[in-house]
């Protein structure tokens, strides 16, 4: 077991290093955005003095390096800072409850993770099952139909898929609500029901990739001597694939799943907009629009962490799925 532990620790350390590098990149990239918050909040007619005052207020007059260190120190202590937009309110209105970036992001992040979880619960089993079946009946009508269907859905724009689903599942057959405005007071069932349409849309988006990787990874192994051996032992085709090919194909499949889950956390703005779903993607886009740098940076870092964490998990799972590493000689 110790060698597995060692590999996992190495990967963890690498993950932390990656996050650190990412934080630098995010910081530089966000600061390279044209225009700044003071300019966009005060409008075209603002005097240079007013702009300078606000910049000073927000610490934007400090050198880049100092600002980075302040931000990094805040991040490391769990303080994501205060949104510029909120700070502005406080200044002009004189006191009142000030909302931190953390309290602003938390409910949105929760919603996004919930949507991603519901989607994953549907998409992952469906993709693997479809992948296994299309590998089993490769080159059959079923295989071709599955390929055409998943490929067309991944090739269509997300909003188009969303409207098609709304048309069939909300308008023509009113089974599900077309708006997914969820809030805290909803019961679990209501929440689930309202999330279902965006989740189905996203399922259509991510299935193709995972299903095709499952199919390819399995078919890749079908020429292996141990698969021939299983066939020569008289095992049924489905058993050959599920019991003999799939366990050896897990590593690439897990990696593609992780990549798609990361996408679900970070890249679903369009779907959120269509269904008016209060996720983190919308918050992110809004913050970029008004150059609300602390929120943008925090969102970027969360996205990056999601990628790093999910890929790390995928790495660890692939290691564990390999008996050579699990049981060294």
């Amino acid at each position: 077991m110790s060698s597995v532990l060692k590999i996992i620790l190495q990967r963890l350390a690498l993950g932390v290093l990656t996050l650190f590098i990412v934080s630098v990149v995010i910081f530089l990239a966000v600061n390279a955005l044209p225009g700044d918050f003071a300019q966009s909040i005060l409008g075209q007619g603002a005097t240079p003095e007013a702009i300078a005052a606000i910049r000073k207020d927000l610490g934007l007059d400090q050198p880049l390096f100092t600002r980075y260190l302040t931000w990094l120190a805040g991040m490391l202590t769990g303080d994501l800072g205060v949104s510029f937009a909120q700070m502005n309110f406080q200044n002009s209105m004189g006191g009142g409850e000030m909302e931190t970036v953390a309290t602003q992001i938390a409910p949105r992040l929760y919603n996004t993770l919930w949507l991603a979880a519901v989607t994953a619960m549907i998409a992952v089993p469906v993709s693997i099952a479809l992948g296994v079946l299309s590998a089993l009946y490769r080159n059959s009508l079923f295989d071709r139909a599955t390929n055409i269907f998943t490929l067309s859905s991944i090739s269509s724009p997300e909003f188009f898929l969303a409207y098609i689903l709304i048309l069939f599942l909300a308008v023509l057959n009113p089974l599900l609500p077309s708006l997914s405005n969820i809030y805290d007071e909803l019961s679990f069932a209501e929440r689930f029901q309202r999330t279902l349409l965006p989740a189905l849309t996203l399922t259509l988006v991510v299935t193709a990739h995972m299903m095709r990787m499952t199919r390819a990874a399995i078919i890749n192994l079908l020429a292996s001597p141990y698969i021939e051996m299983a066939r020569l032992k008289g095992m049924s085709p489905i058993r050959v694939i599920v019991k003999h090919a799939l366990p050896n194909a897990l590593a690439p499949i897990i990696n593609v799943i992780a990549l798609n889950l990361a996408y679900l956390v970070t890249g679903v703005v369009v779907v959120e907009v269509v269904f008016v779903y209060p996720g983190i993607g919308q918050l992110f886009v809004d913050s970029v629009k008004i150059r609300d740098i602390p929120v943008v940076q925090a969102c970027c870092l969360i996205f990056a962490s999601a990628y790093v964490l999910l890929n790390l998990t995928a790495d660890i799972l692939s290691i564990i799925s390999n008996p050579r590493l699990r049981h060294p000689k």
Binding site: S224, Y226, E228, M229, L232, K233, H244, P247, N248, P323
Partner: peptide, 16 residues
């Protein structure tokens, strides 16, 4: 009817 393959190392499933 049973079969014994040339390379046992390749013909045993590494996962089981």
């Amino acid at each position: 009817i049973a079969y014994v393959a040339q390379s046992a190392a390749a013909s045993f499933n590494p996962a089981h």
